Structures are given as structure tokens and as C-alpha cells.
Simulated scan of single mutants.
Amino acid sequence: MSQYPMTAHGAQLLRDELNELKTKTRPRIIQSIAEAREHGDLKENAEYHAAREQQSFCEGRIQDIEGKLSNAQIIDVTKMENKGKVIFGTTVTILNVDTDEETTYRIVGDDEADIKQNRISVNSPIARGLIGKELDDMVTIQTPAGSVEVEIIEVQYI
């Protein structure tokens, strides 16, 4: 299997979620199933079926997280020297040349991406256009809406 890039912060969030699922959510669901079984006839017991469905989702998520963590290539840019180059995990501030609008993005793995928090996937058009470029470079990024010309005005390894 191939490795998937992930920031140290993203890996920690997944470990925390996995711990929560295994130590709190799973035991709570098992308790719910036991209580629902006590109500008798399982064929028409909605509480039992709902708890079994929750258990299925929980176990699926546990397997998903364990799989992601086992194939994760954790990259911690805070331990690297900042040479002004845009790489996975960096926080980049760009200036749209046409609108003079500044935007800051952090380039993260697919699972960590959240545009509301300005975290973009390494596979997004913006990140693909920025990776490998350096501070003060002018970059033309191909987006679904067309070409956008930006200048890289800050690269942080935080």
C-alpha cells in the first residue's frame, strides 16, 4: 500500500478520535445493545437495531482510522529549516495579483483539509500550483473558475 502524507497535528487528531471511539463510544454502544436485548424480542426491537447500526458505524470508523494511521507518512515541518520553499505542511500566504486580496492556506493531507479553516488538501489545484515554489514567486494557478495569478508573500513552517 502507498503512504499518505499527514501532518503531525492531523495524526494526533486521528489518534485522539481513535482513543475516544475505543474507550468511550464502543463501551457505551455495547451497554446499549445489552440493555436493548433485555427488552425481549429482537426482531421488532428498534432500540437493539439502532444500537447495532451504531456499533457497525463505530467499528467501521475504527478500522478506517487504524488503516490511515498505519499508512501515514507523518511530516512535521516545524522540525525543518525554513528555506522559503512551499512544501507539504507549510502555511503559505498568497496575494491575488488582480484583486490585491491576501489569503493564507496550510497545505495538509486529504483527511485534514477544511477550507473553512484555510487548510487545503495537497491534491487541490491551489496546493498543486504552490508546491515546489518559493517566497516571492509569481504563480499562475489553474482553478475550475480559470487561471489566477498570485504572488507568494510568506511561507511559514509552523
Rank of each mutant, 00 (worst) to 15 (best):
Q55S: 11
N71K: 15
I75A: 04
A145M: 12
V155F: 01
L95V: 03
L135W: 02
T99H: 14
I120G: 13
A50R: 04
G84S: 04
G129Q: 05
Y4I: 13
Q63C: 00
S56R: 12
I94N: 06
K22L: 09
I126W: 05
G84F: 02
G67T: 13
I29W: 00
H39F: 06
Y105A: 06
T78Y: 10
L13W: 02
S2D: 05
S124K: 10
E53G: 11
E38N: 14
T23N: 12
D137P: 09
T78K: 13
G89I: 05
I158C: 03
I141S: 06
T23Y: 07
N45C: 07
I131S: 13
L135T: 06
R37S: 07
R52Y: 09
L21S: 01
T104F: 03
G132T: 09
T25V: 14
I141Q: 13
G146W: 10
L42W: 12
V108I: 03
N19F: 13
V150T: 00
D41W: 12
I120R: 03
I115A: 01
D114G: 06
D16Y: 13
E149L: 04
G40T: 06
K83S: 01
L135R: 02
D111L: 12
S2E: 05
T23H: 07
R61W: 15
E53K: 09
V150E: 13
K22M: 09
V77Q: 01
L21K: 12
G89N: 10
P27V: 06
A127E: 12
T103H: 13
T143L: 14
P144F: 15
K79E: 02
L135F: 06
R37E: 15
I87R: 03
R61K: 06
D100I: 06
R15A: 03
R61D: 09
T140L: 11
V97I: 10
E38V: 02
H49T: 07
K22G: 08
T140W: 10
F57M: 14
K68S: 14
E59W: 01
G109H: 09
I75P: 14
A113H: 11
Q31H: 12
M6W: 02
H9D: 13
Y105V: 13
Q156L: 11
A8N: 12
L69D: 11
K43M: 13
E59D: 12
Q117Y: 11
A36Y: 11
I126N: 04
I107T: 00
M1K: 06
T143S: 02
K43S: 15
G60Q: 04
K68Q: 14
D76K: 02
I131A: 05
I94Q: 00
V92I: 08
K116H: 15
T91S: 12
G129N: 07
I115D: 15
R15W: 09
Y105T: 03
S2A: 11
E17M: 14
S147Y: 03
Q31T: 15
V122I: 12
